[in-house]
């Protein structure tokens, strides 16, 4: 490397640190919904990416509607649209659970096939509804550009936004699972379905709502990703591999494991990409993950459930 001034290196260090954190929040946000569905319920939902796409298209539709009918509200529509993304993905998830998933709880491999089929159906529906071309939502100004604490440092505003959202969503999920009555029932059902039923918990309803909430969170994730990535019928498929990677590596039944795994994968990838090439960074990260999973098949954090 040629001579760089110390201040140059410092600002790169700061931005590189932020880029790692930003990747962490992206991975975390992607994985949270799946951590609930796969981790708590054991359903392999291959259509998870498509629920993200639902969120992304919701943002796009809201942006178009606001632009046409209420142009003055453009700076604020994003907040409402994120709630919309949650609700729509929640409702779709609820219906999917009712019509498809609930018949397959005892056949995990069939669920894999069925949800994969569902993902193809959903992709084609997006294509029919929104066209095959990628679309781009008009983002409010406060989400664009960068924050400059010093002239040499640019911290992306959309990165900060995704980070804040992932903190909020994680917090909400933790509160929901560990501090609410609903969460108690969800955990009870996960741990022992028969006993939970025996003490009067409507386990079928719990399943349905849990699945729908997981899908809703995927919708929120998809909505947030419109600020950093593309929106097209198959955008969701870009995320599905990383999403499963994070959840499986973290230990499927552990929410804390998901957070830790997202953090370590993001940091490894971000640092390695900086010093090696893009491809090599990914290769080394994946090799490491495979090695660790060979030694700890249940992921970073084992669940402490008695089976």
């Amino acid at each position: 490397m040629d001579a760089y001034s110390l201040s140059d290196l410092w600002s790169i260090l700061v931005m590189q640190g932020f880029s790692g954190l930003s990747l962490f929040s992206v991975l975390l946000l992607m994985a949270l919904g799946l951590a609930i569905i796969f981790g708590q319920m054991g359903v392999i939902n291959m259509a998870h990416g498509e629920f993200m796409t639902i969120g992304a298209y919701t943002i796009y539709s809201f942006s178009k509607l606001t632009e046409t009918y209420f142009p003055t509200l453009m700076p604020y529509y994003f907040i409402v649209a994120i709630l919309g993304a949650f609700l729509i993905a929640f409702v779709v998830g609820y219906l999917v659970e009712y019509t498809l998933i609930r018949h397959l709880y005892k056949r995990p491999l069939d669920t894999l096939l069925a949800t994969w089929g569902l993902s193809l159906i959903m992709q084609q529906l997006f294509r029919s509804a929104f066209g095959a071309r990628e679309v781009s939502a008009t983002l409010p100004d406060w989400l664009m550009g960068s924050w400059k604490p010093t002239p040499d440092i640019d911290i992306p505003l959309n990165g900060i936004f995704v980070m804040v959202m992932s903190i909020l969503v994680t917090g909400a999920v933790v509160l929901f699972l560990f501090r609410s009555n609903w969460g108690l029932k969800v955990r009870a059902t996960t741990q022992n379905r028969v006993m939970a039923g025996a003490v009067g918990i409507n386990t079928k309803k719990i399943d349905r709502v849990t699945f729908a909430i997981g899908c809703g969170i995927a919708g929120v994730a998809g909505a947030c990703f419109t600020t950093i990535a593309s929106t097209g019928p198959t955008s969701g498929s870009l995320y599905i591999v990383d999403t499963f990677l994070v959840v499986v590596f973290g230990g499927s039944a552990s929410l804390f494991g998901t957070v830790a795994s997202a953090f370590s994968i993001a940091q490894a990838q971000s640092v390695l990409t900086f010093f090696l090439t893009n491809a090599m960074g990914k290769v080394v990260t994946l090799m490491t993950i495979i090695t660790i999973l060979m030694m700890r098949p249940e992921g970073l954090f084992r669940s402490k459930v008695r089976r």
Partner: peptide, 20 residues
């Protein structure tokens, strides 16, 4: 000279390298 995997959506580190 850098190549990103098809479908990769994370360019933070690459962009920092370019800045450097």
């Amino acid at each position: 000279e850098e190549y990103a995997a098809l479908g990769s959506t994370e360019f933070g580190s690459t962009i920092n390298k370019i800045r450097l």
